[in-house]
Design a protein around this nucleic acid. Structure first.
Length: 135
DNA sequence: GCCAACGTTGGC
DNA sequence: GCCAACGTTGGC
């Protein structure tokens, strides 16, 4: 089981929308590193849902329910999508500022690779953020 | 609105 | 293969 973090601008696609829909196709990724991360995802993996630009906070956890396949929104063969479902909302959103100020989260990709939209999260980072959200 | 970081494109 | 120019992301 691997852990991930996926970014979306809430203007484009918000956590609330995924909750309402109950299911989503993560399309539109046009960056090779992010694409490679999509390809590495396995059914059942969990990912944080981060609101970029507006909110700048982790708001929920989603579950990968279908592994990657060709992105049907483009003719280019390089790109893939995964299918996701909401797993649960965090009890309390965890902001970027709080992550930056936490001594246990200094190496998280969210800080180190600010422009990457799909990134792996270490288990201890995942657990730490869950812990923070429940306390 | 600005700017840093960084990926991509294209000329050489 | 290098690098300048340019576009995009995303925080502030």
């Amino acid at each position: 089981m691997n852990y991930w973090l996926m970014k979306s601008e809430p203007d484009a696609y918000a956590w609330e929308t995924l909750l309402k829909d109950g299911h989503g196709i993560w399309d539109g990724v046009r960056n090779y590193q992010a694409r490679n991360n999509l390809r590495a995802m396995k059914e059942g993996d969990l990912a944080f849902f981060y609101h970029s630009n507006i909110g700048k906070e982790i708001v929920g956890i989603l579950r990968i329910v279908k592994e990657s396949y060709r992105d049907p929104t483009t003719d280019q063969t390089a790109w893939v999508v995964v299918e996701v479902e909401p797993f649960k909302s965090l009890k309390r959103p965890i902001s970027l500022a709080e992550i930056k100020s936490d001594p246990e989260l200094t190496t998280i990709g969210l800080i180190k690779s600010t422009r990457l939209s799909v990134m792996p999260i270490a288990k201890h980072e995942f657990d730490r953020i869950i812990f923070l959200s429940e306390n």
